[in-house]
């Protein structure tokens, strides 16, 4: 059997393919790292900047940690002094507390950069998000709807992702009281609080996150214990604290700390 090959068509296909590759290379798809060599090595060049990243609070009490992690990512991904737009649905703020500027200041985010937008519905959040992402001057956009709204589906997240890719503005979906459902986010993180290194005198130390990358469209997933250093804006991977902090109940076999092992 003889198969006829249309050589011209094939050449054209190849040309278009390589053209697309060239376009992708040109697009403003720079990446941002975590500032810690061990995690950046795993993630290759780091996380894609003009993309949609999703951050979940594992449980209700992890809302503070997830918020802190998103702020840290926003700081890592944006240039100094560029404005950060924070879109928060009213109910999320009522349930988990309002974003508190002095505390954000302590995390290293200059509140001057912040524009807080309060939205009464998830639809408002999404519409404002696509507007904010469409503007090149935005440093980062934090999108915080409450729970799993119906309108936050595959199409909506795909639109956000495309806008972010076009303008190169990083978008962070902060998911409080929500469970992961398939969508177009490039990475998906599950955040838990983790024991901090006491700064002495039995006082809580710098923020420590138990971060699990449960989905990564562009590479490997993983699990890290990360400490955020707000002064120089870097994450540092640390060894989990041994279970010694909690005394073992006498009537139960010793158990390793759940959060530390993921």
């Amino acid at each position: 059997m003889v198969t006829t090959v249309n050589l011209t068509a094939l050449r054209r296909d190849i040309a278009s393919l390589s053209e697309r590759n060239a376009l992708e290379a040109q697009a403003p798809r720079s990446a941002f790292g975590f500032g810690d060599r061990s995690i950046d090595k795993v993630l290759g060049k780091g996380l894609q900047r003009g993309a949609l990243h999703e951050v979940f609070a594992a449980q209700m009490h992890d809302a503070g940690a997830a918020t802190g992690f998103v702020i840290a990512l926003a700081l890592r991904s944006s240039s100094d002094q560029s404005p950060i737009v924070w879109l928060e649905e009213d109910f999320a703020a009522q349930e988990h507390g309002f974003p508190y500027a002095p505390g954000l200041n302590h995390l290293g985010l200059d509140p001057q950069r912040l524009v807080i937008v309060r939205c009464s519905s998830p639809q408002d959040v999404l519409k404002a998000a696509s507007d904010s992402l469409g503007i090149r001057g935005t440093g980062a956009v934090i999108i915080a709807p409450w729970s799993n709204p119906k309108c936050l589906d595959l199409t909506a997240t795909r639109k956000l992702l495309l806008t972010a890719q076009q303008t190169g503005v990083p978008a962070f979906l902060l998911r409080l009281g929500a469970i992961p459902i398939d969508n177009s986010a490039v990475t998906r993180w599950m955040i838990r609080s983790n024991a901090s290194r006491s700064s002495g005198a039995n006082a809580p130390g710098h923020p420590v996150f138990d971060a699990t990358l449960i989905r990564n469209r562009q590479g490997m997933t993983g699990h890290w214990i990360l400490q955020w250093e707000s002064d120089n804006h870097v994450f540092r991977q640390i060894e989990p604290v041994s279970g010694a902090v909690v005394s073992t109940p006498a009537h139960r076999p010793p158990q390793t700390r759940k959060s530390a092992t993921g």
Binding site: P83, V85, P111, C119, G137
Partner: peptide, 28 residues
């Protein structure tokens, strides 16, 4: 300069759509 102009435009648009009391900046 161009970028501050753009963010100003965004603030205007969001304020008109959601109300001026919903697009906020924190002041110490």
């Amino acid at each position: 300069v161009q970028e501050t102009e753009e963010i100003g435009g965004l603030i205007d648009r969001l304020s008109i759509r959601l109300g001026t009391g919903r697009v906020l900046r924190p002041h110490p």
